[in-house]
Amino acid sequence: MAELKDNKRKLYRKEKAETRKAFKQARFEDDQQISATPSGDESGSNSFSTTTEVDLPRKRFYRQRAHSNPFSDHSLEYPRSPDAMDWTKLYPAYYNEESKDVQSRVEIADIGCGYGGLLINLAAEFPQILCLGMEIRVQVTQYVEDRIIALRNKYKDEPKKNFQNISVLRGNAMKFLPNFFYKGQLSKMFFCFPDPHFKQRKHKARIITNTLLSEYAYVLREGGVVYTITDVEDLHLWMVKHLEEHPMFERLSKDWEKQDKCVQLMWNSTEEGQKVSRNKGNKWVACFKRLPTPEDCE
């Protein structure tokens, strides 16, 4: 029985991989274009539809264990430098013929975006701003890719909320964030329900540490915001402690949190957040502002 299930899962994922290959860079503007079959050598697999129907992916086929070792040398793809990053694949609708590049830069990053719940909501909230989800787990990243492809397809006729402004990539933000983003490029960074790494010995693997915060301060512009939310109180206290200790960050007040739309989104829209709500668990939020660079520093 288990084997059968496994097989089904494999087939499903293979089919989705084909769709991804074909549609990842598509703009969903012209029906003729998208109805193209994937590369002809796959003549045997007629399992995936050649129409524009791209279904929302089913999460159960993309399960992956919740932890990943951020120190290991995964065979990751990352650009040599921000200059070398090709964003046109991720935001094809923003491609500018003249500059041969996308016309705006990513400003919002969801670090460890998981299944992409927040990202989807950010798309509607900030239709003019490019948002990027980064996720270290391969299959979870693929799920979000498939989800975005399906949404772009579904809303292709919408002029604004068409999900062209969100994208996802597999990456290790703890190691390679500066390879993707220029100094001061980001205005918001989200850290939603990060891996708590309970063991003392593993604390360096946490996504918020005093040394990593210096890198976040580098990619964030002055006044940019770090959003954190977790259902683990210890981790919340840890994140608050480290952010408060870091000279480049200052905590934003509860009043500020109340009026901020992103806090609401973060509270309600992530898959982890919804799970916690279902289980009637607690959630802790803390937001921090990136302070100006000290005058005696460069």
């Binding site: 040599r80 500066p178 390879n179 915060l213 210096s214 580098y218 000279p247 660079t293 000290p294 460069e298």
Partner: peptide
């Protein structure tokens, strides 16, 4: 080991000036 060279201020070493990218 991950191809990076980082330039930070000192003693305020929490302010990164830039990275030097070029090694593979």
């Amino acid at each position: 080991r991950d191809e990076h060279i980082r330039v930070s201020n000192y003693p305020k070493s929490y302010v990164v000036k830039q990275w030097l990218f070029g090694h593979n």
